[in-house]
Measured scan of single mutants.
Amino acid sequence: SPEEIKAKALDLLNKKLHRANKFGQDQADIDSLQRQINRVEKFGVDLNSKLAEELGLV
């Protein structure tokens, strides 16, 4: 269901964000992850996106 997909995506992105902060990645990478999280919260996951591929939806 779209809600489950959204939850999985947010979980994955939050893990990536945590790792980025923990290991001191570029601020641009961290900002990009934050924008992705905001986009998923607002609009859900686009099944044509790279994120959908990472989640194994495509």
Rank of each mutant, 00 (worst) to 15 (best):
S1T: 13
S1E: 07
S1W: 10
P2G: 09
P2C: 15
P2R: 11
P2L: 13
P2A: 13
P2Y: 14
P2Q: 12
E3W: 11
E3F: 08
E3N: 07
E3R: 06
E3G: 07
E3P: 05
E3T: 07
E4M: 10
E4I: 09
E4F: 11
E4P: 04
E4S: 11
E4Y: 12
E4A: 12
E4W: 15
E4T: 11
E4L: 09
I5E: 03
I5D: 04
I5T: 06
K6T: 06
K6L: 07
K6W: 04
K6H: 03
K6E: 02
K6N: 05
K6S: 04
K6M: 06
K6R: 12
K6I: 08
K6C: 05
K6Q: 05
A7K: 14
A7R: 14
A7F: 09
A7S: 09
A7W: 10
A7L: 12
A7Q: 13
A7E: 08
A7M: 12
A7I: 11
A7P: 01
K8V: 06
K8Q: 09
K8M: 13
K8C: 11
K8I: 10
K8S: 05
K8W: 10
K8T: 05
K8E: 04
K8R: 15
K8H: 06
K8L: 13
A9F: 05
A9C: 05
A9P: 00
A9H: 02
L10I: 08
L10C: 02
L10K: 02
L10G: 00
D11N: 09
D11I: 10
D11K: 11
D11F: 11
D11C: 15
D11H: 10
D11S: 10
D11E: 14
L12D: 02
L12K: 04
L12Y: 15
L12H: 08
L12P: 01
L12A: 05
L13Y: 00
L13P: 00
L13G: 00
L13A: 00
L13W: 00
L13H: 00
L13V: 00
N14Q: 13
N14V: 10
N14C: 15
N14R: 15
N14M: 14
N14E: 06
K15D: 06
K15C: 15
K15S: 10
K15M: 13
K15E: 10
K15Q: 13
K15P: 00
K15T: 07
K15V: 06
K15L: 12
K15A: 13
K16G: 02
K16P: 00
K16D: 02
K16C: 12
K16E: 04
K16V: 04
L17R: 02
L17W: 03
L17I: 05
L17M: 06
L17D: 00
L17A: 01
L17S: 00
H18S: 13
H18F: 13
H18R: 14
H18M: 15
H18D: 13
H18I: 14
H18C: 14
R19P: 01
R19C: 14
R19N: 11
R19F: 14
A20N: 02
A20R: 02
A20M: 13
A20F: 11
A20E: 02
A20V: 05
A20G: 03
N21W: 11
N21I: 15
N21M: 15
N21R: 15
N21S: 12
N21K: 15
N21A: 12
N21C: 15
K22A: 12
K22M: 14
K22W: 09
K22Q: 13
K22G: 05
K22H: 10
K22C: 13
K22N: 07
K22E: 10
K22I: 12
F23L: 13
F23Q: 09
F23R: 08
F23N: 12
F23I: 10
F23W: 13
G24L: 05
G24R: 07
G24Y: 05
G24S: 09
Q25G: 14
Q25N: 12
Q25I: 12
Q25A: 15
Q25K: 13
Q25D: 08
Q25S: 14
D26K: 12
D26Y: 06
D26A: 13
D26M: 08
D26L: 09
D26R: 11
D26T: 12
D26F: 07
D26E: 10
Q27R: 10
Q27F: 07
Q27G: 06
Q27M: 08
Q27Y: 07
Q27L: 08
Q27V: 07
Q27T: 07
Q27E: 06
Q27K: 12
A28S: 11
A28E: 10
A28Y: 10
A28W: 09
A28G: 10
A28M: 10
D29A: 15
D29T: 15
D29I: 15
D29W: 15
D29F: 15
I30P: 01
I30W: 03
I30Q: 03
I30E: 02
I30L: 06
D31N: 08
D31W: 04
D31C: 10
D31P: 03
S32Y: 15
S32H: 12
S32A: 14
S32C: 15
S32D: 14
S32P: 02
S32Q: 12
S32G: 08
L33R: 00
L33N: 00
L33F: 03
L33C: 02
L33K: 00
L33D: 01
L33A: 01
Q34W: 09
Q34H: 11
Q34N: 08
Q34A: 06
Q34P: 01
Q34Y: 11
Q34C: 09
R35S: 09
R35A: 13
R35T: 09
R35P: 00
R35C: 12
R35H: 09
R35F: 08
R35L: 12
R35W: 08
R35K: 10
Q36L: 15
Q36R: 04
Q36W: 11
Q36E: 12
Q36N: 04
I37R: 03
I37T: 01
I37E: 00
I37W: 03
I37V: 04
I37A: 02
N38K: 14
N38A: 15
R39K: 11
R39M: 15
R39F: 15
R39A: 13
R39G: 06
R39S: 13
R39H: 15
V40Q: 00
V40T: 04
V40G: 00
V40N: 01
V40H: 01
E41R: 15
E41P: 01
E41C: 11
E41L: 13
E41N: 10
E41Q: 13
E41H: 11
E41S: 10
E41K: 14
E41I: 14
K42A: 10
K42Y: 05
K42R: 13
K42E: 11
F43T: 03
F43D: 06
F43H: 09
G44M: 01
G44A: 02
G44E: 01
V45C: 03
V45D: 01
V45K: 00
V45A: 02
V45I: 11
D46W: 05
D46C: 11
D46G: 05
D46R: 06
D46A: 06
D46K: 06
L47M: 13
L47A: 07
L47P: 13
L47K: 05
N48G: 10
N48H: 11
N48I: 04
N48Q: 08
N48T: 11
S49D: 05
S49F: 03
S49P: 02
S49I: 03
S49L: 02
S49N: 03
K50D: 11
K50H: 09
K50W: 12
K50S: 12
K50N: 07
L51D: 02
L51Y: 05
L51C: 04
L51Q: 02
L51H: 02
L51P: 01
L51M: 05
L51R: 01
L51E: 03
L51W: 06
A52H: 03
A52Q: 02
A52K: 01
A52G: 04
A52L: 07
E53A: 13
E53I: 14
E53K: 13
E53V: 14
E53D: 06
E53M: 14
E54G: 03
E54S: 06
E54F: 09
E54A: 07
L55W: 03
L55S: 02
L55Q: 01
G56W: 04
G56E: 05
G56L: 06
G56T: 04
L57T: 03
L57R: 03
L57W: 07
L57N: 03
L57A: 04
L57E: 03
V58N: 10
V58I: 12
V58M: 11
V58D: 07
V58E: 07
V58F: 09
